[in-house]
Design a protein around this nucleic acid. Structure first.
Lengths: 177, 177
DNA sequence: AGTAAATACCTGCTCGAACAAGTAAACGTG
DNA sequence: CACGTTTACTTGTTCGAGCAGGTATTTACT
């Protein structure tokens, strides 16, 4: 957390013009991009903060949530579920295993794969993780009405959709149809 | 990029109900948080994609932009400007130096500090970096009217402000006044 | 059956992010 | 001037993320 948490309340209060946190200058081009960047940073920081108390590192909680909800999964399934990377998943699972939150069992049908399942010990964390998530949600949506939340969600998803589409398009645009 | 870019267009087209990308399940609690998470991920992915072609790693471009705009800075100033970490900055600067985009000069007034300045070689990148930023901005705001952009920016900043405040508050709430 | 291609994982490497310590220089105050 | 504190940076470690191979298996096709 180092910096961020301590010196976040910048504005000398009065100008009423500056945004809220860092980059007063170089952000000129790409205000939205920059806002996404800052929001994401703060968000990750808080999530990390919350998770740290539980004993998980950011990212691991997503794996656990999926395992708790869907039961044993192969790593490849987790990769697809989290839209993550096979290499990252290998190491994340190794660490979760070493931490005792997860266990590996060879797949009965595929000698290449192994099934990852949550341990009994991990279930003790579930409530805390879910609580942290809703706590984070409360923080970020503080002072927003239900309607405003919906609107915010729409906005976020709209931006997301743009990027998703941009990720799919580039090749097409003429192959498209 | 691995996964994300390739299998991003999920929905079998027709249900019209599912959001757009990963986590169909475990996201229940904290829809906004989750949306922020996904958007940030995609956004970082694109930024990384763009920067990679230029020869910079995500994060380094921000340092360079500040240096180009403000001229030589001490590491401590960069840390404050980017709201980053001193340790991270040390290594980022080392890598930028090694890559030839930055040079160190001992501060004339403070033997502890060194001034970081952009090299001539780095200036060749400036245009490309700025172009990439606006390209990313275009992608993310595709199909949005100016008003919608403003609204989106407001939303993002609203959420950001909530987190900023939450970072400042915890101790207070009674000390507040 | 026999071979080429796709899959499931693993390992090594670079990088940013964050925490913990540690060193050296600059300050502040008595 | 001496003493304690703050400041500027460095180094070491863990972790997620992403890229580039590398090895068993499984599958698809001829």
């Amino acid at each position: 957390m180092s910096q961020s948490m301590s010196k976040v309340g910048k504005s000398p209060a009065g100008t009423g013009q500056e945004a809220s946190v860092p980059v007063p200058a170089a952000a000129g081009g790409g205000p939205i991009s920059h806002a996404i960047f800052r929001l994401a940073r703060l968000h990750r920081m808080f999530a990390g903060q919350l998770l740290r108390r539980i004993g998980l590192h950011p990212g691991q909680e997503l794996v656990m949530m999926h395992l708790w909800e869907l039961g044993a999964q192969r790593q490849a399934d987790l990769v697809r579920l989290l839209d993550s990377d096979a290499a990252t998943m290998t190491r994340t699972v190794q660490r979760l295993e070493q931490a005792g939150f997860v266990r590996r069992r060879p797949s009965p049908t595929d000698k290449r794969a192994s099934l990852i399942e949550p341990t009994a010990a991990s279930h003790a964390l579930r409530r805390e993780v879910e609580q942290s998530w809703s706590q984070l949600e409360d923080l970020v949506t503080a002072g927003l009405t239900a309607d405003e939340c919906t609107a915010a969600l729409d906005t976020l998803e709209r931006l997301e959709r743009n990027l998703v589409q941009a990720a799919a398009d580039p090749a097409r645009a003429d192959t498209e149809r």
